[in-house]
Every structure is written in structure tokens, then in C-alpha cells.
Amino acid sequence: MKIGLYFGTFNPIHVGHLIIANHMAEHADLDQVWMVVTPHNPLKKKSTLLDDYHRLQMVHLTTEDFPKIKPSDIEFKLAQPNYTVNTLVHLQEKHPNYVFSLIMGEDNLKSLHKWKNYEAILENYEIYVYPRISSDPKNELENQNNALKNHPKIHMIDAPVVEISATFIRENIKKSKNVQPLLPAKVWDYIDHNNFYRK
């Protein structure tokens, strides 16, 4: 079975995440997409994160009607801060018959060379990349990005460009703005019921 791993803090998960996950499950050569909830991204301030369990529960609520998309708490069990390469090794040991690959946005591809052991990741795993609108097209990493785009393990997938920001959602909930169209209905109900992101 071929599994695409879609990592994120999902703080909160929104319709953009679901659109990308579903597109990869339906249009890339993957059998399933696992949405891996990261307990703490070393590049993000932990203080802005909702509790791990609540973010995982929102991913459960979002994916329960999508049999090809599964929530994963695999990183909850690993030492923090964790790195993707460690998660991949752990999953491969736990599921030796599965073939794992990564799903990432084009913006993450540009910084892949900064990841821990990125050469080993590229050597051993396929990477499926969905497009993002670049805020700085003349970025100094553009050449690096182009070189990676042509790498045999990297597959550029013509997925919808969805520019929805979890930060934007959190900030607007705090301002009492209506963000319901940006969230799966069950996720909005969960956030509203628990009074999340209001302070």
C-alpha cells in the first residue's frame, strides 16, 4: 500500500487542508493519505498551538467521511522536538509492507535543503508537491527550487491552489468574524462549542 504523509499542526484543520489531501488521494498514485498531526514544529512557537488532542480530534472529525484519508498521531509518541526523517524511519519499521512518501507545498520544497538529513529523505522517499502562490517569485532559493523540481523523486501535482491560512482563521475567530466557510462544519462546531481561539 502506498501512503502519502501530509504533515501539519492543523491549528485548526481547514477546508484548504482537506481539498489538498483529497486531491492527492484521488489524483496522485497513492492509496491513502495520512494527515500527521505534529505536536510541535521546531520552527513554530508552541504557545500558539491548541492542545495536541484537540487538533487530532478536529482531523478525525474532518476525515471520518473520507475513507482514503486517515488521521495519524504517530508523532505524539516520538521525542520532541521531532524531525520528519525520524518519523519516516519509525513508520517504515512499524509498517514494513507500506511504501511511504511525503506531501508538501511548493513553499516547503524551497526550504527542503534546510531539513535534517534531507538528502536521505530524497534518496529513499517520493515527494508529492502541490502548488502555492509564491510571495516572492524572485526568491534567492528559486534556483534551488528548480533543481529540486527536476529531481526524479519529486512529483509536481497539479492540485488546486488553496491559500487559506490557519493563522488568519484564528485571528478572525478572536475578532468574532464569521469564518465558517473556511472550516469543515464539524470542526467549526467543535471550535465553537469549546470556545477555542477566542482569547
Rank of each mutant, 00 (worst) to 15 (best):
N195L: 12
L5W: 08
H90F: 11
F100S: 02
E126G: 05
I121P: 02
N82K: 03
D158S: 15
I169M: 07
S134E: 05
K70Q: 13
K199W: 08
Y190A: 06
K149L: 06
D107Q: 03
V33C: 02
L18E: 11
A28C: 14
N124F: 07
K174E: 13
L88Q: 05
N22Q: 14
K186T: 06
S176I: 06
K70N: 11
L18M: 13
P67G: 10
N145W: 05
N172G: 08
L148Q: 01
K149V: 10
L109M: 02
L122V: 10
I173S: 02
K77R: 14
I74P: 00
M156C: 07
A147Y: 13
K45R: 12
I127H: 00
L5Q: 04
Y53H: 14
E119N: 12
V37F: 00
N178Q: 10
S135N: 14
E106F: 03
E163A: 11
W188N: 08
S134C: 06
F10I: 00
V179L: 11
G4V: 05
M156P: 03
P39A: 09
F196W: 13
N194L: 15
K116V: 13
Y128C: 07
Y53L: 12
K46F: 13
S176R: 15
F66R: 10
L78Y: 07
N194S: 09
H90Y: 14
H151K: 06
M156L: 15
N145C: 13
V161Q: 11
A147K: 12
I133K: 12
H40F: 10
D29N: 14
E171R: 13
L56H: 11
R198Y: 11
H95Q: 12
E26R: 14
V179H: 03
D52M: 08
P81Q: 06
S101H: 03
F7W: 05
I74W: 04
L102G: 01
N11M: 04
I13Y: 00
V179A: 04
L112Y: 03
K70M: 12
K177W: 09
G105S: 07
V187P: 03
T84S: 07
I164R: 05
N178M: 07
F10Y: 12
F7V: 09
I127N: 00
L182F: 14
N139V: 02
E106A: 15
K94R: 15
G105K: 03
I74H: 07
V187T: 09
P137I: 08
